[in-house]
Nucleic acid binder design. Structure first.
Length: 220
DNA sequence: ACCGGGATGTTCT
DNA sequence: GAACATCCCGGTG
């Protein structure tokens, strides 16, 4: 079956309904095509884990825009991650695209990811890997994936979402910041899923970066 | 398998 | 100045 863009009405709903149905849809950019196998819902003002929890800022403004656009953000000083904006305008809802199964264009993905990404399952098995493989960065923030703005489309080839997707808590949130909600869905058994089990939420009370440049001591 | 830690810089308080 | 919707590597079982 031919690939058709997922219509905008699909996104104009609660992201907790959109995320599981986004499984088995296609992320398409030029020759690169991958089947989405993992997604998380971020639920705006009721969700401490969401960038939109505290309202609109310069960074998250796209989340408050119309559904069916990409919200692309930069994190940890080096990674881009992308979401599909959901719900009604002005609310701040989104689904994070966490992992996908490469179908074509793997060589281009591998060129973007670097020599360390040997196997196909290393190309898109995480939100930042997926963006790197597809070359999605800040320039794609706001791109309309229904119209195919900037060459990126989320498409449907007729494959239905799984009848019984895997469900779990979300990945990478800190304790007390919405980590308890089971708003992650994935294609059970797919090797491209980032983690079978997200494990414990991150305890950020432990120092992970011992003081750098303290007491005026400069390195080198 | 699990866990610890480093890379890196933008965003928000 | 702390936190951060991550990833990769190396150590230990």
């Amino acid at each position: 079956m031919a690939v058709k863009p997922v219509p905008r009405r699909f996104y104009r709903r609660d992201p907790r309904d959109v995320a599981p149905e986004l499984l088995n849809k296609l992320l398409v950019r030029g020759h690169r095509v991958a089947r989405i196998v993992e997604a998380e819902a971020y639920v705006g003002s009721i969700d401490p884990g969401s960038h939109a929890f505290k309202g609109m800022t310069n960074r998250n403004a796209t989340m408050f825009g119309p559904a069916g656009h990409l919200y692309v953000y930069f994190t940890y000083g080096m990674h881009w991650c992308s979401n599909a904006v959901c719900g009604d305008e002005g609310v701040g809802l989104a689904v994070l695209l966490r992992a996908a199964s490469p179908l074509s264009g793997q060589e281009e993905m591998r060129a973007n990811r670097g020599p360390l990404a040997g196997r196909d399952r290393d190309l898109c098995s995480g939100p930042a890997k997926l963006c790197q493989a597809f070359g999605i960065d800040g320039a794609f923030d706001g791109a309309d994936v229904v119209k195919g703005d900037r060459g990126v489309v989320i498409g449907d080839d007729g494959t239905p979402p799984p009848t019984s997707p895997g469900v779990s808590r979300r990945v990478g949130l800190s304790l007390g910041h919405g980590d308890e909600y089971e708003w992650r869905w994935f294609v059970a058994g797919d090797p491209n899923v980032s983690r079978v089990n997200p494990g414990k939420p991150v305890d950020r009370t432990k120092r992970t970066r011992p003081g750098r440049g303290q007491d005026g001591v400069s390195p080198g």
